[in-house]
Design a protein around this nucleic acid. Sequence first.
RNA 1: GCCUUUGUAGCUCAGUUGGAUAGAGCAAGCGCCUCCUAAGCGCUAGGUCGGAAGUUCGAAUCUUCUCAAAGGCGCCA
Length: 586
Amino acid sequence: MNIKQILAEKVSAAMVAAGLPEDTNPAISLSNRPQFGDYQANGVMGAAKKLKTNPRELATNVVEQLDLSGIASKVELAGPGFINIHLDEAWLTVQLNQVAKDDFTGVTQRGVNANDDAKTVVVDYSAPNLAKEMHVGHLRSTIIGDAVVRALEFRGDKVIRQNHMGDWGTQFGMLIAHLSDKLAGNEVAETALADLENFYREAKIRFDNEEGFADRARADVVKLQSGDEACAKLWQQFIDISITHSEEIYEKLNVSLKRSDIMGESAYNDDLSTVIDELMAKKIAVEDQGAKVVFIDEMANKDGEPSVFIVQKSGGGFLYATTDLSACRYRSGKLAADRIIIFTDARQALHFKQVEIVARKAGFLPENVGYQHCPFGMMMGDDGKPFKTRTGGTIKLAELLDEAVVRASALIKEKNPEISDDDLALISKKVGIGAVKFADLSKNRTSDYIFNWKTMLSFEGATAPYLQYAYSRIQSIFSKAGIKPSTLKNDVTINIIEPQEKALALKILQLEDTIDAVISECTPNLLCNYLYELASLYMTFYEACPILKEDISDDVKTSRLALCQVVSDTLKQGLDILGIEVMDRM
RNA sequence: GCCUUUGUAGCUCAGUUGGAUAGAGCAAGCGCCUCCUAAGCGCUAGGUCGGAAGUUCGAAUCUUCUCAAAGGCGCCA
């Protein structure tokens, strides 16, 4: 169910009938003022400009050809060529009632319509460095990626998650050398690695100061990479425990990543020399100053100097450029991806642009496979500088999340002193984590954003608690009415009476449109905006339209209860895509 | 030096491929609980969209220049 798409098809047909080319964009958008109707089509003006004709006359022709019978109650021509569309309330009512009965709250599944097949989408996100604990810098990739993944799946695409964990590289030599000594001292790996930050720090101190240790560490890297069994065993132990740390975070964050989604850097190790051989054989890469590099003319600067992309170090070692090229081939080949999406911070934008160009040249990434690097900004403190602890250290993600729950708990207790300890624990977890996630997800992906406890947990305005509150208010009505929401699904017809109900209906019918925008641009903030608007319209409806009051007729009562039911489903479903949980009471 | 991103109300942010009078939330001010959860609702105020020029019926959005911030640019990832 996508109103915008239905209107786009109708207006397009009218445009063609009026003599415009087939690919003319009808440019349907929501009207920004009630007197301009519900939707407007602005495409005629652009088209008239291209054809150098009078926009008003052209628009008149299009409107004459436009058949919206049954859908619109009024179509008006305004200004230089705006076509304002007032939707027919009867039509809206029919659509709304269909959505009310639908398990996917009106979102069409891929494959149902022609030209809308399910795609295989590979999504690379989270990707923490296993040498250390996850810190706040990993939050955005993890939750933005997960939200997009869930949106894709909800729409019906086949998603293959790829957690490209940093589990390989020189620092692991130092770590396994240190671990080896700890185990020799009769320590158990789990205890030695209980605090990864400490462990890393200890190893680093030894590496920098202790005589002979650095040499051992370097030797261990070489041994590890050449397949030495003892080193591999130590490495595996380290990796396993570090992954367990990450899994705890995913669990806390309600993120859908599983161990089976891990495809770490080490997994590409055996393929790297092949990648280089192919690049050399195809004369894409050349030797320069001892290293193997690709000179990318497509990205030359004004003076014609090509961009440089190193794929193998002069000593023969490989870099993350090599790994990412190998990943391109694996994903488009073995995984048969139609589309590849990568979530990393914006600093890597240049790198991924280079990877794509080289991979396409080398044939690792066929023409028809989409490749999308989705960068995001950093998390800043109140002072606008990178978010750090008071002493300047990185903030562990686990600690941040714990603090969110503690803060939520204090606030809930204050609002609701009689709450039981069990309820408090459960609700503060959902509210605290939800608040952190929503604050992040609701911001535009590309810019840096300021992390602030106060605004995200204020419980006022556009926050997760506001949405959760709207949801629990609805549940409260059901419980007060003694009605199981599921019983409303089939027998009840919703009627639109008040303007607040119409506004709500219109918003409900925009879910698919919103999801599609989230999917194509990888921007969950659009879904956040949508859900906030939905919740806000519900609150307005709640104040204006009594449901369980004595003077409300049974018909109106059941109609409104059913409307509540659709809003409740939509909110729950939308928040679920964001990985935010709801509760019946708060 | 070159490249990328960002700059919108006091603060935090939206703003769909150029569309009509630039929108929310917080903070500020004023109202609304004998009534389904006031973690709420309604109203008021707040802006030369960093600056300048250009493109056109029409610019926060496109082009050029400029100012400011952040980041990247040959052997880390």
